[in-house]
Design a protein around this nucleic acid. Structure first.
Lengths: 141, 141
DNA sequence: TAAATACGTAACTATAACGGTTACATATTG
DNA sequence: CAATATGTAACCGTTATAGTTACGTATTTA
């Protein structure tokens, strides 16, 4: 369980919701597709709501709806919504400041890591939930 | 401790070794710069050796040496050597195959994630350990 | 207005990865 | 043979995660 599966599940959820954008979808139903517990789904939907991507309604005929068109939600948006940290992590303990490399390596790596992360993020910003729906549709024919 | 710091430490180690490519460097000394235990350093160096980037010699006047010039080691090489997994992780449990989305989402996401990861990896392949040494040098002036 | 429904979230648990540490065997040098 | 340095197993505390139960709150509808 090294890396969270939240991002993957979030994309699964949104793709599922986008296949029927008009009717509210219930966490219990989504959990059936993802094959997990409804609470896990609601936790992730909570983050998506905080990011303004979905909204919820309690009670009978309640459930979840997209706030934006599936074609306006990029995979980068969803990644930000999950607040997944950087795929890179700095040292546990601060390096030795008495060593030239130790004193400057984190600044240098911060720069390099930021650049690499941006390359990944930019790539993700070029795909949308609507594209995932289409890919699933293509795969099922 | 969400993501491993191995990659960061590996880059630190190689940058340090590259500042004096000629003499063997001892894990104890490296640990002093990284500010951790020598065993942690040796574990990471072991992975770098498996990847053919460094070699070791036990005993008096022993230690570690680069196998290649610092300008021939890219940050992508080091990432591969650490065997860091993908920054993306699929579902814990297999999704419901009775659902169209559940049946196809992993294949679709595998494709999308692979593309994003490649963007990051390509970016990392354009920097070398020699460049890190230079950046540290620049920062210390 | 009462029953049914569905979200919201706290609390607890098992699992796994990680970093740190000790200990000791092995290899090399001089 | 003594000193040194790697190689690696074993163990521990910390942390994140996913799963689960439980229960309060909001909303609909009969």
């Amino acid at each position: 369980m090294n890396v969270s599966t939240r991002y993957t599940v979030a994309l699964h959820i949104l793709t599922l919701m986008a296949t029927d954008e008009t009717h509210p979808m219930v966490s219990e139903f989504i959990a059936g597709s993802v094959n997990t517990n409804p609470v896990v789904i609601r936790r992730i939907l909570g983050r998506l709501r905080t990011a303004g991507l979905v909204k919820s309604h309690p009670g009978v005929n309640g459930g979840w709806l997209l706030c934006k068109s599936a074609s306006d939600i990029t995979l980068a948006d969803v990644r930000l919504a999950m607040e997944e940290g950087s795929p890179f992590t700095m040292h546990t303990n601060a390096p030795n400041p008495a060593c030239t490399v130790g004193r400057h390596i984190q600044g240098v790596l911060g720069h390099v890591f930021g650049h690499a992360e941006r390359a990944m993020h930019d790539d993700l910003s070029r795909s949308t939930i609507a594209a995932l729906v289409q890919s699933v549709k293509d795969a099922s024919r």
